[in-house]
């Protein structure tokens, strides 16, 4: 919808005189209008956490956005402005709304009782203001959605921690639902974790996982194979009898998992592998 609005031409639909008149009028009363806006915003306690300098520059930007739309006959100025929505999103949205009110009132006052002219100008202006507001709202929602997505991602990252518990030994405890998205995350975290920590052995514990479908099981197998190509061994622990039964029913080759009963025996086995590699320690060997 926003994309459609952005392309709407103003002048082709409405008479250009009204637009020209509004531009001229708003420009010559610019200072006064901006002051009125500040007053209204203050009255609603919307400016409390802004410095005077910030208020001035924001107010000017919003005011100019309205002017630019009227002058240019299209909404590219709004699209431009909405790109800066990153922070203070709500403030900017409300600011645009307050300007709409301030400018509408100004139009009524300026028409000095000429109801016909007031109505015409007002109808014209409010249509434009509606479009501006729609574009801004849309942009705000987009910003919020992006933010939510980012947060969801960081939660996802947190939910597959890679713990370095000994030199060259990583442990990945997985709790909750292991779906395809999380399995992919797990793979990337694991393989890069192996590289960063020079890990030789990785223990993946799925005690806290209730269900594993065949896609995820196959994904785990690929991860184990990729880790082996990098020179690391993966041990899978905590496979519940239910999961084991499902996997067998699905035809998954369990022998590929280097499965151990619980996380403790997994870590012990990992240490055995590492110890077997690192017997060089002289201090312990010599009596």
């Amino acid at each position: 919808m926003a994309a459609k609005i952005a392309k709407v031409k103003i002048k082709s639909i409405e008479e250009p005189e009204t637009a020209a008149w509004l531009v001229a009028d708003f420009t010559s009363n610019g200072d006064e209008l901006q002051q009125m806006w500040t007053k209204e915003m203050k009255a609603e306690k919307l400016l409390d956490d802004q410095t005077p300098k910030e208020i001035r520059s924001e107010s000017e930007l919003m005011f100019n956005t309205y002017l630019e739309c009227l002058r240019s006959g299209n909404y590219s100025a709004v699209v431009e402005y909405s790109k800066k929505l990153g922070e203070k999103t709500v403030f900017k949205l409300v600011g645009i709304m307050v300007y709409r009110r301030v400018l509408s009132r100004h139009i009524v006052i300026m028409s000095q009782g000429d109801i016909e002219s007031a109505t015409r100008s007002l109808l014209f202006f409010e249509r434009i203001a509606d479009h501006i507001l729609a574009l801004m709202t849309n942009a705000t929602i987009e910003v919020r959605e992006k933010l939510a997505l980012k947060q969801a991602e960081s939660i996802l990252e947190l939910s597959t921690p890679v713990l370095s518990i000994r030199d060259r030994l990583l442990v990945l405890p997985i709790i909750g639902i292991l779906d395809s998205l999380r399995a992919r995350q797990l793979t990337e975290n694991l393989l890069h974790g192996v590289r960063e920590n020079r890990a030789r052995v990785v223990v993946i514990d799925i005690t806290g996982v209730a269900l594993v479908d065949s896609a995820v099981a196959n994904h785990l197998i690929l991860t184990i194979d990729a880790a082996r190509l990098m020179g690391a061994t993966v041990i899978l622990t905590g496979i519940s009898p239910e999961i084991a039964r499902t996997m067998v029913a699905l035809g998954v080759d369990l022998s590929k998992f280097n499965a151990m009963g619980d996380i403790r025996s997994g870590i012990e086995e990992a240490e055995r592998i590492l110890g077997y590699k690192l017997v060089l320690s002289k201090d312990e060997d010599e009596p």
Binding site: T187, R195, L222
Partner: peptide
């Protein structure tokens, strides 16, 4: 030695296990 993480993953997806 030295197969990189992303390369390893591409290999197994392709079906190369060495």
């Amino acid at each position: 030695v030295g197969i990189q993480p992303d390369v390893a993953l591409a290999m197994v997806r392709l079906g190369l296990f060495l």
